[in-house]
Amino acid sequence: MPREDQGPLLEFKAVNTYYGDLHVLKDVNYTIGRGEIVSLLGGNACGKSTTMKTIMGVVRPTRGSVTFDGQPIEKLATSERVKRGIAPVLEARRLFPRMTVYENLEMGAYTQKRGAQFDEDLERVYSLFPRVKERRNQVSGTLSGGEQQMVAIGRALMARPRLICMDEPSMGLSPLYVEQVFDIIQEINRQGTTIFMVEQNAAMALSIAHRAYVLQTGKVVLSGTAAELRENPAIKEAYLGELQVPAAA
């Protein structure tokens, strides 16, 4: 199958997702271009996590289509989506707590063949996160939250993804780690991986994203470049709150 190198990498077209009678995503459209960092903002229970689950195939949309690399994927099994190049960084990290850091990285490469490519990917993760290399034989449940987040991102990279879907990468981390994690996300993006990121910390998210969508009770109410959204009065009031804005702003 010829790969379309133009069109968007991931596209939601009029996606509607229900949990029983509960209408969670309402006619949602997203377009994630190749090489972008796109952020999804919104309050609690607005459909952000459902968006991630819909991309990974944990939840199937009732109506609408999801395409990855020009191909419809909404009917594919999760494992097939991972093989095609979508990897998750899950909310609350969700490492395998009683497996070592190394074994967690191996699980990230589950759909990949072992061999030179695996070693290369492992080296890449270790060079991005020297801390992960130090801790590689430690049981992951004993790591600090920040270290776990690094392993979770490393685990996603081991799948050689073209798209990484991150669910709340800053959640539960100390401000120092948040800075570090966002620097790394930018670095990974510069190395060529597209990032779609759900994030509560809107100020942080908009500081690294190219574009963003704002989701409210299951509907996209705003979208635009990160710069536009940072200046949008509604966003400033609802998500950026004066205290979160860096002093320089």
Binding site: V58, T78, K83, P88, M107, Y110
Partner: peptide, 9 residues
Amino acid sequence: DAARMMGVE
């Protein structure tokens, strides 16, 4: 759930 999202069948 996490295992499934690593591609485990």
